[in-house]
């Protein structure tokens, strides 16, 4: 018999229905990743016992680990399914939806909270208009190294999944969103808008809710220095407060 991959998937038929486990055996192919396991299942949607079931629902887009869509919990670790190579995974491969966001169906969750929080903290550079105003401000190439790293954040939610402070009963905004506040504070134009942004960052669910568990930085697939970033943001806050007090 040809080689197969054993897969266990935590399924849920609708947002309100109970979760259950389903088992599959997928024919092995060289170079498979978790996405191709799921694709193989939908081309022949039968569970391990041979019973026909509905294909599994999951979210995906780029499959190059730059969009963040296919994030799920794989063998207990939150990560993107596209870079989870079957050859490097223990079997059975265990797939679960992220636990910190509401499940919509099977492995697909609703991560709207991340985007709402980005809105909350003014995660943008405010410009005068989209017409031609000439070149932007000059920037130090060293700063660009830092800002590019921060800007690689794809709002996947890995840092929130592992954060003990980020739960469904509080409104902590999470490390990724704090990282974005730091990103816009570093931009020469964004820096001018720092006081308003920091007001939001220190508001309800803000930076003070971080418990310094430091799990975020280990879980970030883009290796964004989140702990260091939160520290830098704390410094921005202190400085802004001191400067504000001096001006009074």
């Amino acid at each position: 018999m040809s080689k197969t991959v054993e897969v266990r998937i935590k399924r849920q038929d609708s947002p309100k229905s109970p979760a259950y486990w389903a088992e599959f055996a997928v024919a092995y192919e060289e170079g498979m990743n978790v996405i191709s396991l799921l694709q193989a299942i939908r081309r022949d949607p039968k569970d391990k016992s041979g019973k026909t079931v509905a294909p599994v629902t999951w979210e995906s887009s780029c499959l190059e680990e730059v969009c963040g869509a296919c994030t799920m919990v794989i063998n207990g670790q939150v990560r993107q399914a596209c870079t989870a190579l079957v050859d490097k995974l223990e079997q059975p491969v265990k797939l679960e939806p992220m636990s910190k966001f509401p499940v919509e169906r099977d492995l697909r969750v609703n991560r709207q909270r991340i985007f709402d929080n980005l809105k909350k903290i003014n995660a943008w550079v405010e410009v005068d208009g989209y017409h031609d105003l000439g070149p932007g401000p000059r920037q130090n190439p060293d700063d660009q190294t830092t800002t590019y790293k921060l800007s690689e954040c794809m709002s996947c939610g890995c840092c929130m999944e592992v954060c003990p402070q980020f739960t469904d009963i509080n409104d902590f905004i999470g490390a990724a969103v704090l990282g974005q506040a730091r990103l816009f504070n570093m931009h020469p134009t964004g820096a001018m808008q720092m006081p308003a942004r920091l007001d939001k960052v220190t508001g309800p669910g803000g930076i003070q809710d971080c418990g310094l568990a430091q799990q975020c930085v280990k879980a970030c697939p883009k290796h964004i220095p989140l702990v260091e970033t939160i520290g830098a943001l704390q410094r921005d806050i202190t400085l802004t407060q001191v400067l504000g007090a001096l001006k009074k």
């Binding site: 031609d132 000439g134 070149p135 932007g136 401000p137 000059r138 800007s151 990103l183 134009t189 964004g190």
Partner: peptide, 21 residues
């Protein structure tokens, strides 16, 4: 002008030593 606008919007473009795009 489009590239300049995107720069003003905060795109993390690579820079020359002089700080230009």
């Amino acid at each position: 002008a489009v590239i300049n606008m995107m720069d003003r919007l905060g795109v993390t473009f690579n820079r020359t030593p002089e700080g230009l795009l």
